Simulated scan of single mutants.
Amino acid sequence: MKKMTLKAPILKFESDLWSYYVAIPKKVGNQFIEGEDRRVICKINNGTPIHSALMPKGEVYSIYVKKEFMRKNGLEEGDEVDIQLKKDKSEYGMPVPESFQVLLDQDTEGSMYFHELTKGKQRTLIHIVGKVKNVDSQLAKGLAIMHHLKEAKGELDFKRLNVLIKEYNNRK
Rank of each mutant, 00 (worst) to 15 (best):
S90R: 06
S90C: 10
S90A: 06
Y92P: 07
G93I: 04
G93V: 05
G93R: 03
M94N: 01
P95I: 03
V96M: 14
V96G: 06
P97G: 09
P97A: 11
P97T: 08
P97W: 06
S99T: 13
S99F: 00
F100C: 00
F100Q: 00
F100Y: 10
Q101K: 14
V102K: 15
L103F: 06
L103R: 00
L103V: 03
L103D: 01
L104C: 08
L104W: 06
D105M: 05
Q106D: 11
Q106L: 12
D107N: 15
T108Q: 11
T108S: 09
T108C: 02
E109I: 14
S111R: 15
S111K: 14
S111D: 06
S111M: 09
M112K: 13
M112I: 04
M112E: 11
Y113G: 02
Y113I: 03
Y113D: 00
Y113H: 14
Y113E: 05
H115E: 14
H115C: 00
E116K: 15
L117C: 10
L117S: 04
T118M: 08
T118I: 02
K119Q: 15
K121H: 12
K121Q: 13
Q122H: 15
Q122R: 15
Q122E: 15
T124A: 11
T124P: 01
T124C: 03
L125I: 11
I126P: 03
I126L: 13
I126Q: 02
I128F: 08
I128G: 01
G130W: 03
G130M: 05
V132M: 07
V132P: 04
V132D: 13
K133E: 11
K133M: 08
V135Y: 09
D136M: 03
D136E: 12
D136F: 00
S137E: 12
Q138W: 00
L139M: 14
L139E: 08
L139D: 05
L139K: 08
A140N: 07
K141N: 09
K141H: 09
K141Y: 08
G142A: 08
G142S: 08
L143N: 15
A144L: 07
A144W: 01
A144N: 10
A144V: 04
I145A: 03
I145M: 04
I145Y: 03
H148W: 07
H148E: 09
E151L: 12
E151R: 13
K153Q: 15
K153A: 11
G154R: 06
G154D: 07
G154Y: 07
L156G: 00
L156N: 04
L156W: 05
D157P: 01
F158E: 10
F158M: 14
K159A: 07
K159P: 00
R160E: 13
R160T: 11
R160Y: 12
L161A: 03
V163G: 01
V163S: 10
V163M: 14
V163I: 15
V163C: 04
V163P: 00
I165L: 04
K166N: 14
K166Y: 03
K166C: 00
